[in-house]
């Protein structure tokens, strides 16, 4: 499934999409950035409620396919701009991390 295909699922909206054709191969859920950095795999959709700028560095270093902000978490404009510059895909959803994971599990 690509990031663009993920966005067609109900309840997901684009925040910043720089490469919609990036392949989503798996899912990782976590908010502790050191933990995520070490354990998220390349191509994962990373579900988090963290919204500070450090999520961009973690996404870059771990090569995740996209960040999914759960529970309606919003990003500031400067973080969105930085995400565009760094080529990171960010999606948001009102769903909980669990419900997002369930939806992705069915789609993957």
């Amino acid at each position: 499934m690509t990031v663009n295909e993920l966005l067609k699922l109900e309840g997901f909206s684009p925040v910043v999409i720089t490469d919609g054709e990036a392949e989503v191969k798996g899912v990782y859920i976590g908010d502790l950035l050191s933990w995520v950095m070490g354990r998220a795999c390349e191509g994962d959709a990373w579900i988090t409620i963290m919204s500070n700028i450090n999520i961009l560095a973690v996404a870059t270093l771990s090569d995740v396919a996209c960040i999914i902000l759960a529970e309606g978490v919003e990003l500031s404009e400067d973080i969105k701009t930085a995400a565009k510059d760094k080529g990171i895909n960010i999606i948001c959803s009102e769903k909980s991390a669990y419900d997002i994971a369930v939806a992705l599990s069915k789609a993957l």
């Binding site: 502790l32 950035l33 050191s34 933990w35 950095m37 070490g38 963290m50 500070n52």
Partner: peptide, 16 residues
């Protein structure tokens, strides 16, 4: 509150 400070920095550096 930013998602750091969990006492994993140095152990991660050693691990990797």
């Amino acid at each position: 509150s930013l998602g750091f400070g969990a006492g994993m920095g140095l152990p991660n550096m050693k691990r990797y």
